[in-house]
Design a protein around this nucleic acid. Structure first.
Lengths: 262, 262
DNA sequence: CGACTAGTTGAGGCCAGTCAATGTTGGTGG
DNA sequence: CCACCAACATTGACTGGCCTCAACTAGTCG
């Protein structure tokens, strides 16, 4: 890794610094050929603009399972577009409590939480061997300045994080355990479907404990709920592989009044 | 109100449309004299830049208690800087469940949740008679383009919402009732202090029910917790007026392990 | 004054947490 | 190849924190 790094620019070195366990892959990114283009930052750009956008990508990086892409308090220098793999982001309280704040998959952008303070507030850890495009933020800003059409994409990107968090707040603040899990499964399903995968059968990349942390529950509760939903014939679970048998019923669970039953 | 509107520009009419109960106040905003300048969007700008920034503010608007600044699904045209007063933002599920997602006070910016979809996802309601500066988003983008130093402020602004939401997710996902309330009180205290008010004695602008909704609890629980914290001598409550008697103890409550007691 | 809203307090129930035992899976080394 | 181990997962019994329902008080506005 060290010898590879020697050839690359300052940005790349910075990126490597913030992600000590990641390895450099190659400078050239080809959004043109990337299946995730329309889900990613260059979405909607004209072909020639996409070509220009590629120059913003300082490099690609591999991150191995369990390795950090960035850690809490790391200097914020870039956001990361996931090419392959999945990540979790989590906050750590001083006392060691961990709260998983997000689950990210291909085509999604990670790391925008660092913009406001200049340091990342969350850590991002790969849930499987993954690959990301490194997008130095100052280059993104520059590109946005040169191409106003893209500038709006960038605002939208950050704002999408706000929406995601708000959905999560709604889930955590007003749903019961079963509803939370059902909502989470449907959310995963929709995102897999948008990526061309099956919207009914997929692999969970998180452990029960991680799912629990994300949904504000305990791992035993998740385990019990999986068993229960399976018993009801709504899903089929086998370790980490899940099959949704009755999405309509899951949606009904999410929608039903959690309180003030009427 | 109608006759006033007749004189104003398209932006203002748009703003008035999204906020049907708000009334137009005056076109000229004077950030220069505004006590909240350093907490608001023009924070850190040079005096002449602040002068330029004022042109972005299409107008000021009064919003009466209980009136909406914007509602869910309203077209997103502007963000709003609070000059006077306080607001709550809330999401509504189809089934009528309401989840309060935010509490905003002077100098804070509201409405960034609309950027990504072009429509607001939350509604914003004034908790007391309030006044906001209307900042049409396309003008903000234009200004950011002309003054890159400000551009960064704008990214930071949106990203701050992300941080706020993440803090909330942490609170909702991993704290017990007492910790949530203590954290909320300390959060309010810090924000009042930053505005030059007392950091130990302040008025709650939300009902018990609203506080409960925001913290993912029920109003009775909030009421009981207030009584309990008062009994312990940590706070003094009298309806909506609160006095923090022992902030250190409150901080201890927030910090103590909620689970895995060690 | 009565109607209404906001808040307090109590009794009881239930959902999810806690503790603990056991089963399953996957990786490692003899 | 199997034995072993650690990490992950399941299930049961019990507990307790918060919700629910309900009664009552205080303050406000017509």
């Amino acid at each position: 890794m060290g010898s590879t790094i020697a050839f690359v620019s300052a940005e790349i070195r910075t990126a490597a610094f913030t992600a000590p366990f990641a390895s450099y892959v190659g400078a050239a990114a080809h959004c043109e050929w990337c299946g995730l283009r329309e889900l990613c930052l260059p979405a909607g750009l004209a072909p020639h603009a996409v070509r220009l956008f590629e120059r913003v990508i300082s490099n690609r990086m591999r991150v191995k399972r369990r390795d950090s892409l960035y850690r809490p308090d790391d200097l914020f220098t870039a956001v990361y577009a996931i090419r392959v793999g999945t990540f979790k982001t989590s906050m750590l309280a001083e006392d060691g409590r961990e709260q998983i704040t997000g689950y990210f998959m291909g085509g999604e952008i990670l790391g925008a939480d660092g913009i406001s303070h200049g340091h990342h507030r969350c850590g991002a850890v790969a849930l499987e061997d993954s690959e990301v495009c490194v997008l130095p933020f100052h280059l993104l800003e520059k590109f946005a300045h040169e191409l106003p059409a893209f500038g709006h994409n960038l605002y939208r990107l950050i704002s999408k994080d706000v929406c995601r968090s708000q959905d999560m707040m709604f889930l955590l603040g007003s749903m019961r355990a079963e509803q939370r899990l059902a909502a989470h499964l449907l959310n995963l399903a929709a995102r897999y479907r948008a990526r061309g995968y099956s919207g009914t059968e997929f692999m969970l990349r998180m452990t029960r404990e991680e799912i629990a942390s994300m949904l504000g529950l305990k791992l035993e509760t998740i385990s019990r709920l999986f068993s229960h939903l399976q018993g009801e014939g709504l899903i089929q679970v086998q370790g980490r592989s899940v099959k949704l048998l009755d999405s309509a019923a899951l949606r009904w669970i999410v929608g039903k009044q959690s309180q003030f039953e009427s």
